[in-house]
Write a protein that binds this DNA or RNA. Structure first.
Lengths: 129, 129
DNA sequence: CGACATGGGTCGGGATTTCCGACCTGCGTG
DNA sequence: CACGCAGGTCGGAAATCCCGACCCATGTCG
């Protein structure tokens, strides 16, 4: 019955900041927690906890995440200041996709969804062309 | 009751490499584990375990260590060879962009180009927002 | 509108890991 | 030899983590 067992989940500004950055980046890339989980092996609920600053992030986990998010590890550990999403952006992307405004990026994603949808429905409708 | 508690010492090469690097750096700087412990708050026995790859290193702990050792965090996490961006870069793409057929991919790129072009010309035409 | 699907937060509780506090060996050194 | 320091190791106890739901909010579709 200890009101404060000790390092209760949450309440660590550093961890929260880290989680926040991880979430922002994931959102920016349009990935779901599930996808991140699949790609990294980190349990989905853990991804959720991490982003809420309720769970620590192991070094190697952070490394995997950084890789998946295409950012240097330091990006997530940096000191407040140098934490701008737009900057470090996507190094290995086709030129056509870099430098898009957030709004345009959204449009591109929607368009891509549309294309995939169209392809899927075509296939569904007429299996054997 | 567990055939494989998986809690065995030093089973993860990655962790061992990380620990090795940490130890080498500490040795190089002539610090004792005790000193590192005092400076970082990481229990001394934990420092020992870490260096032997028997314990994970939390992200924030690594940050503190890197700071104490005056090295960038990436120094300890860097992969032997920093290359192969191609494949892994794509692994981090938003799901909307994954799994597109070549043709659709072309369309997406074209669309992106179009958006950038449009935005550019709009701006040119109407400088002041 | 209701049936579903997806995304994300939260929780109980057993499984793991970490921490604490020794204890032990190895090494100089006085 | 006694001493002190460094680092490795261990027995639990305590803190965390993970699994597997369960919930709620948002769409989407028929």
């Amino acid at each position: 019955m200890s009101p404060e067992p000790a390092a209760l989940r949450g309440r660590d500004p550093e961890l929260e900041l880290l989680g926040e950055r991880l979430r922002n980046t994931r959102d920016y890339l349009g990935m779901s927690q599930q996808h991140v989980s699949d790609m990294t092996g980190i349990p989905r609920s853990a991804v959720s906890d991490i982003e809420r600053g309720a769970r620590r992030v192991d070094s190697l986990e952070l490394k995997k995440l950084a890789r998946l998010y295409m950012r240097p590890v330091s990006y997530f550990l940096a000191k407040e200041e140098e934490a701008d999403l737009g900057e470090h952006a996507l190094a290995g992307l086709p030129r056509a996709l870099v430098g898009l405004s957030d709004g345009d990026w959204e449009e591109v994603l929607s368009f891509a969804e549309f294309l995939k949808f169209r392809r899927a429905s075509e296939k569904e409708r007429e299996p054997g062309e």
